[in-house]
C-alpha cells in the first residue's frame, strides 16, 4: 500500500534539478522555457528544485567539463534514491561541437548512469516534455 502511494506520488510529481555541466546556455534557457506558460511542464507536477536533496530527476545539460566532473558526481550522490538522470542536448549525450576539446569529457554518461537522452542542439521544449513523458513511462514500467 505504502509502496503504491510512493509510486503514485513519484509519477505525479517528479521534482527536477537542473544541472549545467558546461553547457552553452541554450539548452538551459530552453529548459527554463519549458517551465513557463507556453509549454508549462508544471501541469505534469514537474517542479524545478534548487537543491539535489529534494530532487528526483537530474536534468543534465552540457558536455561535462573536467572542472565540473567531481561536482557532477557529488550532486548525483547527494540526490536521494531512487534517482533518474536525463541527458539533455547533444552536448550531454556526446559532446556536440566541443567533442575533442581538451577540457571536455564528452557526454555525461561517461560519469553517471543516464536514463533518458533528449537529442537536439539545443533541444526544443517540446522535446524535453516528450523526454519527461518517456521517463515517467519508464518509471511506471519499472514499477510493474
Amino acid at each position: 500500500m505504502l509502496q503504491k502511494l510512493t509510486q503514485w506520488s513519484r509519477l505525479k510529481s517528479p521534482w527536477i534539478l537542473h544541472l549545467n555541466t558546461g553547457a552553452c546556455n541554450a539548452c538551459d534557457i530552453e529548459v527554463v522555457a519549458a517551465l513557463t506558460p507556453r509549454f508549462d511542464v508544471e501541469r505534469f507536477g514537474i517542479l524545478l528544485e534548487g537543491t539535489p536533496r529534494h530532487a528526483d530527476v537530474i536534468i543534465c545539460t552540457g558536455p561535462a567539463t573536467r572542472q565540473m566532473k567531481d561536482r557532477l558526481i557529488r550532486v548525483y550522490e547527494q540526490t536521494p534514491d531512487p534517482k533518474f538522470v536525463m541527458a539533455v542536448g547533444a552536448c550531454a549525450m556526446s559532446g556536440c561541437v566541443y567533442r575533442g576539446a581538451y577540457n571536455i569529457i564528452g557526454g555525461i554518461d561517461q560519469l553517471i548512469p543516464v536514463d533518458v537522452y533528449v537529442p537536439g542542439c539545443p533541444i526544443r521544449p517540446d522535446a524535453l516534455i516528450e523526454g519527461v513523458v518517456k521517463l515517467l513511462d519508464k518509471i511506471k514500467q519499472g514499477a510493474k
Partner: peptide, 11 residues
C-alpha cells in the same frame, strides 16, 4: 571561474 571552460578558442 572555470567550471564552464570548454576550450573553444583552442578548438
Amino acid at each position: 571561474l572555470g567550471y564552464n571552460h570548454r576550450g573553444v578558442e583552442k578548438l
